[in-house]
Design a protein around this nucleic acid. Structure first.
Length: 749
DNA sequence: CCATTCTGTCATGCC
DNA sequence: TCGGCATGACAGAAT
């Protein structure tokens, strides 16, 4: 039997060698291990000569077959196993040569390695990898809500500036007129400068930017405006007399004129019914009223045109005219309730932006009318970014639309009143003392809150003063007014914060804290409780409950207006509302006098200073600090995840590069081996090949496809070749057996 | 309804 | 010691 085994094994060996020589790859491994155990025993058992094939079978040992006891050299075996494992470690990625060729053809365009130019290939690959990485990053960013809104913000920022380009000559003239109105009202340069005390540098910078924008966008008119601004020393930075400036002048006039509580009515009444405002008031107040009247007259535009030479189509004029004519009740429409918040907000706070440069402010104003109109037409969802800014571009064209004009100003007035109310409420509840108020005045009084931007903050001043401090002295009244202004400035109600948010967004660019963006719209909503302060505003109050709803209610969902168009924008708006989230509502509930945006983003020094300015309860302070902590941690978490993702992507790219390098090196190695080892007695697994012309492919030895679809394709080829070889081997085995029987029979005698 | 993903928050450690 | 950042872990919402 021993001889039989010898014959058989030798015969098989010779047969396999023969097959290898003729180019047929015999993967004995498969058949030996699983399909033909007897044959495996026969082959592996007899001698170590066949252990060469164990090179190929070594991994079978790992599968539990174990090395045959008769294996002559376990050391060699283990050595071979180790080497083989190393080789396999190298060629995980390996695929048959044919496939590799195809792969190379496929990969070369990408800059993948071609054996001759590894470096270039790597370089190209790395470059492509970079692209890949950037691509995924972008995708990720887009996927992230933050990022998505960041784009919106970017769009917002990008789109908004061009709006100034839409400023017509009339707009500019009107701005200049309004600006002069501020001067007439006594808003001195110091007021303006003072307003920028905190962000003076930013203001200057943005002012320059704004002037540049004016130059580029507005052309001559803008230049003229810029010259006016530059020329006039009083105005200084003067944010051009924008609509807000006009309104802002109100406070100044108010303190002097309105020290008696009786002014409450007079104070707000003019706002509410601008047309009826008497001109017998003080000159400033009269001027102010004239402005308001102009606004009121806006529908007819005749009066405004006469007084200010403002063309009918002027956005600003349209802007101003809106509210007075229309009672707030009328103004408050359902759509305003939902959207109005945003548009109104924007219109209101945009002027308030502390550091908002002339250009930006000027640009923003035109937006209001266009906005309102666009909102009415398209129905604006609460999304400012989507509707508002894009619409701004067309703002001038939309200005003429009559019936819809009243809304913006009405909304503005409403917002202003709400702001006032909230400020009053805050002032009352928080117990601002005149001293702090005076301090605040130093900070904020001139601070644009008055003259510079805030249209509503002044109004808030007036209202707060009128209502809260009836008998207060002029100083105290001014202090309170300043306090209220500071509130508004600080975003007590959230308006200013919104504006500031805008600022921050612009300043920070894409990095901007996007959740804040939601505030952009949301901040317009007022706490209903605040409305109750002023009895005569109650009618306004319930009218504006629409606006209040989101903020007032803990539920983040906006009241779904029936008229709203259900769309992605609205959905986005809802998302933004939800973005406002708990802290925003908490802050409102706690009547935090400043926005979360400031709470989170202000430097610790400014933050502490801000806190010191207000008499806040422990609960409020705790909430504020929690908000700050959570906000910062949220941003940190976002950054952390972003970095993590980037790291993963980079690692993935590196792995791919290394795999390519390994594949390349292995191919080179195999090629060298084939070149020099043709005469040697290589392992059976390597020796037997399906395609004689093809270099040895370690990939064939691997179970792992290592090459994706190409690898699968190759596998199919390999399977076919193996099947053929299998049948041929069986046939040959039968022949050999027959020969063996024949020989034994003949040799037996 | 379940699994996965996304996002916010907390706790912890480090600087 | 405080403030901020980084990060793992968890929970809830969204998909």
């Amino acid at each position: 039997m021993l001889s039989l085994k010898k014959y058989l094994t030798e015969g098989l060996l010779q047969f396999t060698i023969l097959l290898s020589l003729i180019g047929v790859r015999v993967d004995v491994d498969t058949y030996l291990t699983s399909q033909l155990p007897p044959l495996r025993e026969i082959i592996l058992g007899p001698s170590s000569a066949y252990t060469q094939t164990q090179f190929h079978n070594l991994r079978n040992t790992l599968d539990g077959y174990g090395i045959h006891p008769k294996s002559i050299d376990l050391d060699n075996y283990f050595t071979a196993r180790r080497l083989l494992s190393q080789v396999r470690a190298l060629d995980r990625f390996q695929v048959p040569t044919t496939e590799v060729n195809a792969w190379l053809v496929h990969r070369d365009p990408e800059g993948s390695v071609s054996g001759s130019q590894p470096n270039s290939g790597l370089a190209l690959e790395s470059s492509s990898g970079l692209q890949d990485v950037t691509g995924p990053d972008n995708g990720v960013r887009e996927s992230e809500t933050e990022q998505g809104f960041g784009e919106d913000l970017e769009d917002l920022g990008a789109v908004a500036p061009p709006v100034s380009g839409d400023l017509t000559k009339e707009d500019i003239d009107l701005i200049g007129i309004l600006w002069r109105q501020d001067i007439d009202l006594g808003a001195g340069r110091e007021v303006f400068d003072y307003s920028h005390r905190q962000k003076e540098q930013d203001v200057d910078k943005e002012l320059q930017d704004g002037r540049e924008r004016e130059d580029t966008w507005s052309g001559e008119g803008a230049e003229a405006l810029a010259r006016d601004l530059l020329v006039d020393g009083e105005t200084g930075e003067s944010f051009p007399a924008q609509f807000p400036a006009d309104v802002s002048s109100i406070p100044e006039a108010v303190p002097s004129e309105s020290e008696s509580p009786a002014l409450q009515n007079s104070l707000l009444s003019p706002l509410l019914t601008g047309t009826e405002s008497p001109f017998d008031l003080e000159q400033q107040w009269q001027d102010l009223m004239s402005i308001m009247e102009m606004q009121a007259m806006e529908v007819n535009t005749s009066a405004s045109e006469i007084l200010y030479n403002a063309p009918p189509g002027d956005p600003l004029s349209t802007n101003y005219s809106l509210a007075p004519n229309t009672p707030i009740n009328q103004n408050v429409s359902l759509h305003q309730a939902s959207l109005g918040g945003c548009s109104q907000d924007f219109s209101l706070f945009s002027p308030e932006v502390e550091s908002l440069p002339v250009a930006s402010s000027s640009t923003l104003l035109p937006l209001v009318p266009s906005n309102s109109t666009s909102l009415n037409s398209t129905f604006g969802s609460t999304n400012l970014a989507g509707l508002f800014f894009p619409s701004q571009l067309n703002g001038t064209a939309n200005d003429t639309s009559g019936p819809e004009l009243p809304d913006p100003l009405g909304g503005l007035l409403d917002e202003a009143m709400l702001d006032e109310i909230s400020l009053m409420d805050l002032a009352i509840e928080e117990g601002f003392n005149p001293v702090q108020a005076s301090q605040l005045e130093e900070e904020f009084d001139s601070d644009s809150g008055l003259s510079l931007d805030s249209s509503h903050s002044p109004s808030s001043l007036s209202s707060s003063e009128g209502s809260s401090s009836s008998s207060s002295s002029s100083s105290s009244s001014s202090a309170s007014s300043s306090a209220s202004s500071s509130f508004s400035e600080e975003g007590a109600v959230g308006y200013s914060s919104d504006s500031e948010t805008l600022d921050l967004e612009e300043a920070e660019g894409a990095v901007g804290y996007q959740p804040e963006y939601s505030k952009f719209c949301r901040m317009s909503y007022q706490d209903p409780s605040q409305l109750s302060c002023l009895p005569y505003l109650e009618h306004v109050g319930h009218n504006h409950t629409y606006n209040m709803a989101p903020s007032a209610l803990d539920s983040a969902d906006l009241p779904p207006p029936s008229t709203l168009k259900k769309g992605s924008k609205e959905k986005q708006a809802d998302f933004l509302d939800k973005q406002m989230s708990r802290d925003g509502h908490r802050a409102r509930a706690m009547k935090i006098p400043f926005t979360n945006d400031k709470i989170i983003n202000l430097p610790v020094e400014e933050f502490n200073e801000l806190l010191s300015k207000y008499q806040l309860s422990e609960a409020q302070l705790s909430l504020i600090r929690d908000i700050r902590r959570r906000g910062k941690n949220k941003m940190a978490a976002q950054n952390c995840r972003k970095r993590k993702l980037d790291t993963i992507l980079n690692l993935e790219r590196d792995v791919e590069d290394l795999q390519r390098d390994k594949a390349r090196l292995l191919r080179e190695k195999e090629n060298e081996k084939c070149m020099q080892g043709a005469g040697d007695d290589p392992p059976l697994g390597f020796q037997l090949q399906a395609a004689s012309s093809q270099p040895v492919q370690p990939g064939l030895l691997e179970d792992s496809p290592g090459g994706g679809s190409e690898g699968q394709r190759q596998d199919s080829q390999v399977v076919g070749s193996r099947t053929t070889v299998y049948f041929f081997c069986c046939w040959f085995f039968v022949v050999v057996v027959c020969l063996f029987v024949f020989l034994t029979a003949t040799a037996a005698p």
